[in-house]
Amino acid sequence: MLTTHALVLAIMLFCIGLVGLLSRRNVLYMLLSLEIMLNAASLAFIAGGARWGQADGEIMFLFILTLAAAEVSVALGIVLQLSYRFQTLDADAFSEMKG
């Protein structure tokens, strides 16, 4: 029962993060929303591991943690560069590539 509700909580957290990612235009907030979504995914893994009594859920959590650490360090470097070069963090302002 607890693990089912943990999965529901993970879905809700993921949706909140997705809404934040889509609605905010500040790069820093988009990163924060990504963190929320990664956390929701790891909560789902932990809940699954607790439901079946297997260690794999926690191991996936460890990998997600490593991924988040690497991703955040690189992404924050990009944020710093963007703010040096454009003097803004608005994601719509970075349209030089006209892609």
């Binding site: 820093l28 926690e58 943690l65 988040a68």
Partner: peptide, 30 residues
């Protein structure tokens, strides 16, 4: 919540690495 689900190690890592290290990175950048 991780602790209540029986994943104490994950709970400790969540506080130390996420709540500690990654959030400190964010605050430094801000």
């Amino acid at each position: 919540i991780f602790y209540l689900l029986g994943a104490q190690f994950a709970a400790a890592l969540e506080i130390i690495i996420y709540g500690g290290a990654i959030m400190v990175l964010f605050i430094f950048v801000v």
